[in-house]
Write a protein that binds this DNA or RNA. Structure first.
Lengths: 241, 241
DNA sequence: TAGTGGTCTAGACCACTCC
DNA sequence: GAGTGGTCTAGACCACTAA
């Protein structure tokens, strides 16, 4: 902790920044064990209590997690935090109901202009498209449209590549592409003809729409995803204090 | 910290519970100054560091807030945390755009059955109804339907009682009814004829629906509110790590 | 048994607020 | 100046994990 940034920044904050820099610059990647508290303390020339406080804060922010007796690890992206996850089946009563997903289409095809531009391609570029339908029991409740950069996940369009419910596991393990972050935007709309047909609801029924941008290292966006779900099957509940 | 609950519960957790009990049982109400750290430490027979840790946790949970040099206070309910607050004007770009509200109807009238039952009345009871329309600039973007327990806020139906944008300020100050907590449930729907007309949108356009249950002391529900907003003007954005 | 995080203490010094 | 929270240290002891 040298630097000329000695002005007014608390020690524990500098320890936090040190760890975050290691993460953001790739010296530590999701799942890695970070150095132990005593190691960090002596390396950075602060007390273990200060390191503890820094790590406490990062754990509160979900950037790290601890495991007593083993060590402290860098968090992996947890899509259980997806906005959709908070939506419960029924009218807010349901717990974590499992949604089963099935691939309904996959191919290399010309991407729509918003997907091309968001992913950093010229309009009309070929993208890897995967469409999936999500079910609770046998009831279809959502449709996912995923657009991937084809060179990031080459061959994923092949029908023999198994796609697990949590697609990101495949991306990380098979293609060795770290998934670092995602942004989600939620809004509402009414079902178009195709969506209505897939979900078995009348056209123009209310639907929840979730747009997700998924990023890998160096702020590279690797997927544009649009998920459309039946509004009568999703609601979000929160408490205000 | 006596009690026979000496088993395995960390000291700081017991301090947290002590403070929370003071809040839940009304010995401390929102806005109150809690005892200072040294006072709590000696009273509970623990070190100041332990009290600090307990308070740290409660501050992280937004149950308390600190003000250096002054003390630590019990949080007041912050409706800026409303799910609607996170929704931004436009398509997720907007910052905190101000929504101006105007009362469009207020009267004592027979409540709908869901409002009566939720508020703990017999069906067909008279409730205090307030309808407001929310605008950005001059564009109507939401309609609020509020149902209050009439005996909690007597006279609020009189047209000379000014209703501020943040209605709860009036309730707390004029009627001395503490607002302790609220629950919100968010979902989507399509506009009915009346809503469409008020918002100036086609019937069956997509809308965001927010149901709010507002509670006072002793878990007494005092308001049932339904807010309906134009879906094209609201979107919720979040980041996943 | 050695190493990790988890709890708890005691005390120093600083920064802010109010009288 | 007295009282509050904010930062930081040093060290004790406990609980869990692994070899």
């Amino acid at each position: 902790m040298n630097q000329l940034a000695d002005r007014h920044i608390p020690l524990y904050k500098r320890v936090e920044n040190h760890i975050l820099a290691d993460i953001d610059e790739g010296r530590l990647i999701p799942g890695d064990l970070i150095p132990s508290e005593p190691q960090l303390a002596t390396k950075l020339g602060v007390s273990q209590g200060t390191v503890k406080k820094a790590i406490d804060n990062l754990v509160n922010e979900k950037r790290l997690y601890r495991h007593q007796g083993k060590g402290t690890y860098v968090s992996t992206v947890d899509f259980n935090n997806s906005l959709f996850r908070f939506f419960s089946y029924g009218d807010g009563t349901g717990k974590g109901v499992r949604i089963h997903k099935e691939v309904s289409e996959r191919a290399l095809k010309t991407g729509p202009k918003y997907a091309c531009s968001q992913l950093g391609y010229k309009p009309e570029s070929e993208l890897l498209y995967i469409q999936r339908c999500g079910y609770i029991q046998d009831l279809p409740i959502l449709v996912e449209h995923c657009w991937w950069c084809p060179e990031v996940v080459p061959g994923m369009e092949q029908p023999d590549v198994h796609i697990p419910d949590l697609m990101y596991a495949l991306v990380v393990e098979k293609y060795d592409v770290p998934v670092v972050r995602a942004e989600e935007t939620l809004t509402a709309d009414v079902a178009d003809k195709e969506t209505a047909q897939i979900l078995g609801i009348p056209e123009k029924s209310p639907v929840i729409v979730l747009i997700r941008h998924t990023y890998s290292r160096a702020n590279k966006m690797i997927e544009y995803r649009k998920t459309v779900g039946r509004a009568d099957k999703f609601s979000y509940k929160a408490e205000i204090r």
